[in-house]
């Protein structure tokens, strides 16, 4: 079974006196279990819209989005998913510990196993010393770590991350990368959007590039080695051309 299946997905936003705007326009792709897939595209390409649909925050205008075979709008689909939103803000009047307890209980965890998990996660994101400080007194980087810990609650089989590294300092970024590496070893499937192409290159198995809501390129990272100077260079040239420059070269040859 695939971790993610997206078929002919259309996400349109209604506008006044104009036809709806298609932020995602006939997108199809799959993510296999255990894969790490980077979801790339310039600002406004439709990454967040796709991810929100995968999380059931909005219904597809057309097409389908499935998580482990279940429709993405089905609450049960999220039982196996950990999510880190683009702008992660947590209630200013709760502490990191209480924040994690809330999300853990909503996930169906309780009692001693939940407490043990919260303590282990706070330890993993190095927030144990701030566990009982109100969120409003934490720095942006610390809040981002609360977010990371929250995403890992309940041992997700699939992690969906939207522009994770934004707001993290260099040390935070390194720690996040280590955490993702640990998750990868455990066989967790990871699907994430990011602008940090060096980072993407360092952990991904595969990349998808979307542009104006359409998939324009899809490659295993190992296929790119030797064919492009760098992921960054390839990404920029592909997005500027509006289609996969590698296919063009194949056709030209």
């Amino acid at each position: 079974m695939r971790a993610i299946v997206v078929r002919n997905l259309v996400v349109a936003y209604r506008r006044w006196f104009k036809p709806p705007f298609r932020a995602v326009d006939g997108l199809s792709f799959e993510v296999h279990q255990g894969e790490i897939v980077g979801f790339l595209g310039v600002n406004g390409a439709g990454k967040t819209s796709t991810i929100k649909t995968l999380m059931g925050f909005q219904s597809p205008t057309a097409g389908e989005a499935r998580i482990f075979g279940m429709d993405a709008t089905d609450a049960r689909a999220r039982q196996l998913v950990g999510f880190l939103p683009e702008t992660a803000l947590y209630s200013p009047y709760l502490t990191p510990y209480e924040t994690l307890r809330l999300y853990g209980e909503l996930h169906g965890l309780r009692g001693r196993p939940l407490r043990a998990q919260i303590e282990a996660l706070l330890e993993a994101v190095k927030l144990t010393h701030k566990a009982h400080t109100l969120n409003k007194n934490l720095s942006k980087g610390m809040l981002q770590r609360v977010g990371i810990a929250q995403a890992l609650l309940g041992d997700p089989k699939l992690l969906i991350l939207d522009e994770v590294s934004s707001g993290l300092d260099p040390i935070g970024k390194r720690e996040l990368r280590d955490l993702l590496a640990t998750q990868r070893e455990r066989g967790t499937t990871i699907f994430f959007s990011s602008h940090e192409l060096a980072e993407v290159a360092s952990i991904c198995d595969r990349i998808l590039i979307i542009h104006h809501g359409k998939l324009i390129a899809e490659h295993r990272l190992s296929d790119l080695v030797g064919r492009v100077d760098s992921l960054e260079d390839y990404f920029i040239r592909t997005v500027q051309a509006g289609h996969d420059i590698l296919n063009e070269e194949v056709q030209a040859a």
């Binding site: 925050f57 999510f83 939103p85 909503l106 996930h107 169906g108 977010g147």
Partner: peptide, 10 residues
Amino acid sequence: RTIYPLMARP
């Protein structure tokens, strides 16, 4: 936007 982590739960 705390609704996101909230509704990311089952």
